[in-house]
């Protein structure tokens, strides 16, 4: 078995575009769920808004890429308000129901035949990152090898910008949650009536957390779009949202670096088990070679699910979480 290949795939996946995209989405969910207790099950809709705003602005409107980013943020705020205004006064479950439905609505609109002229139907949109890559100071023939995996200049530029954005987002989250503003959010997570009884406008704080978390999701969507130079609607399904939740729980909710650590480990395991199982099948390892390659792709999710179950049993606070905080829930 080629362990060098497996390990280099794990390294590339741990720090690849998908790790960045899901890391940003999980940072947004951390703001909403980890700190404020808002169950946003529609993070993929915010990611879709980010990715598609950029793509449609460049291709259909013929405008600059950076206008796309501005539009992405504006639409994200509108979407968050649209979801939040009717639901944030109600119990937490209403937001969960509305967001999961809204994310499917967004995805179905994006892939619909009616709007094929704008969004490109189920194929999505391609090639809109020229303005973004024009900023790259890297030499065009740059190539970076990790074992047998080679990254070209564009990929390296996306990774540099992406990780810079991940750390900038972490810095913003850290600045926000250490402040009295963040203290109000944590109070709302614990008991919003108590916070209300102390004269805080709970509705406003929940709305702010929803918008900020959505914006991180939109940035993730934009990185996905430029990283692949393509957006397709079916990426923005509910499983994308739940991957982001899995990442957050793995890393540790309500911890600034929880989502970052979560995404690195999640993608290393997902892609690592994939190549491991496939090469095990190729060389005919007993038992494992009973599977086909397609089945192996599904089995890796079972393994991750099993891993998360074990984590929940033995370390329910996630890798970075504080056990003391969690133990208090038991009473």
């Amino acid at each position: 078995m080629d362990w060098g290949y497996i390990i280099s795939v794990m390294i590339v996946s741990a720090f690849g575009v998908e790790a960045i995209v899901f890391g940003l989405a999980a940072i947004g969910i951390n703001m909403q769920f980890g700190y404020t207790g808002l169950l946003n099950f529609g993070q993929s809709a915010f990611m879709a808004v980010g990715g598609y705003s950029v793509a449609v602005t460049v291709i259909e409107l013929g405008a600059n890429f950076w206008w796309g980013v501005v539009i992405a943020f504006a639409v994200t705020i509108v979407l968050a308000l649209l979801l939040g205004i009717p639901t944030l006064r109600l119990r937490a479950d209403y937001l969960a129901i509305v967001t999961i439905a809204a994310s499917e609505i967004v995805r179905l609109i994006l892939r619909s035949v009616t709007f094929k002229e704008i969004f490109g139907g189920s194929d999505g949109q391609f090639s809109f990152g020229a303005d973004f890559f024009a900023l790259s100071p890297l030499p065009e023939d740059l190539a970076f090898r990790i074992g047998p995996v080679v990254l070209n200049e564009r990929q390296i530029f996306v990774l540099i910008v992406g990780w810079a954005l991940v750390f900038l987002s972490c810095l913003i989250v850290w600045l926000l949650v250490r402040s009295p503003w963040g203290r109000v959010l944590k109070g709302i997570r614990e008991d919003e009536d108590a916070v209300r009884s102390l004269g805080k406008n709970v509705y406003l704080y929940k709305m702010q957390a929803l918008v900020i978390g959505g914006l991180f999701g939109a940035i993730g969507g934009i990185i996905y779009a430029v990283g692949n130079e393509a957006v397709s609607p079916d990426f923005f399904g509910t499983d994308t949202t739940f991957f982001a939740y899995a990442i957050l729980i793995l890393g540790g909710a309500a911890r600034v670096f929880g989502p970052v650590l979560g995404t690195v480990i999640f993608w290393a395991i997902i892609q690592g088990t994939d190549v491991f199982l496939r090469s095990a099948i190729d060389i005919g390892v007993p038992v494992l070679s009973l599977m086909t390659g397609t089945q192996a792709a599904v089995v890796r999710f079972m393994l991750v699910g099993l891993g998360i179950m074990l984590l929940m049993i033995f370390r329910p606070q996630g890798i970075l979480g504080d056990r003391r905080e969690l133990a208090l829930d038991a009473r």
Partner: peptide, 16 residues
């Protein structure tokens, strides 16, 4: 601390 009123740091823009 959460009980204190009129905290500047509880406003989003000044919190960072």
């Amino acid at each position: 601390r959460l009980g204190a009123t009129g905290q500047k740091g509880e406003r989003l823009l000044s919190s960072i």
